[in-house]
């Protein structure tokens, strides 16, 4: 694994801070705070234990910390990416207790005792998961930023089809679901690729599905 990144001062952090200040003044102008502005009713931090890629990790986090930020900023597992931070792009997709979720829309404190798997736990350059190898083989990316989320989703899409979980394009709801291009595309709609590598992503997923059939 690559050495931990020094998080003390990065240009992106500085810019994010400036944007947050701008957003705050915007809120004040709009008079958005419908709720009370009183004090919180207890501690604003919580200690949780997560099993991350098979390893128990105890963390004390501000209650506001998302699972995504806990992984990236506290555990230095930066393979899981922050794209929109609002559940719209899928870059933050990881698995919790075996199911894929948007880690940006979940709080770390909600996951005490849960098993989290990130892209780092799926495979490493010298021992890639079949889905990672297929993405490389088919050029399923250009810039690569969405790729960890795409791979996390892709692995689960195949499992979800085989488990009989219906999708919007599923025909007969009581029959076995075939792994078709339409099923894969529909189920991958929560992972956006702004480089537009969709055709190659589809080819990679199809190959893994066929090889593991």
């Amino acid at each position: 694994m690559s050495p931990p990144i020094d998080f003390s001062l990065r240009r992106r952090t500085l810019l994010a801070g400036t944007a947050a200040a701008a957003a705050f003044s915007a809120v004040n102008r709009g008079g958005a705070a419908a709720q009370s502005t009183g004090a919180t009713a207890g501690p604003e931090t919580t200690t949780v234990t997560l099993s991350v890629n098979g390893e128990e990790r105890e963390l004390t986090v501000d209650n506001r910390t998302t699972l995504l930020d806990a992984l990236r900023e506290h555990l230095q597992l930066t393979g899981t990416k922050k794209g929109c931070d609002h559940g719209q792009c899928g870059a933050c997709t990881c698995t919790v207790n075996g199911e894929r979720i948007n880690s940006c829309l979940s709080l770390a404190v909600m996951h005490d005792g849960d098993a989290v798997e990130t892209i780092e736990g799926i495979g490493q350059p010298e021992s890639m998961d079949p889905m990672q190898a297929a993405f490389v083989e088919h050029d399923g990316f250009q810039c690569g930023y969405c790729t960890p989320g795409q791979i996390q989703s892709a692995r689960k899409v195949i499992e979800e089809i085989r488990a009989g979980i219906p999708s919007h394009v599923t025909g007969d709801l009581t029959a076995e679901i075939a792994i078709t291009d339409a099923e894969i595309r529909e189920r991958m709609s929560g992972n956006i690729c702004r480089c537009g590598a969709y055709a190659n992503i589809l080819a990679a997923i199809t190959q893994v599905a066929e090889e593991s059939a």
């Binding site: 705050f24 809120v27 958005a32 709720q35 004090a39 919180t40 209650n63 998302t66 979940s106």
Partner: peptide, 22 residues
């Protein structure tokens, strides 16, 4: 949390206390 956290980040929802019913 998929809707509430989205709204909390935008400070449209501003709870002082969160009761996790999971």
């Amino acid at each position: 949390g998929t809707n509430l956290l989205d709204l909390m980040k935008l400070e449209i929802e501003i709870p002082l206390h969160v009761i996790d019913v999971n």
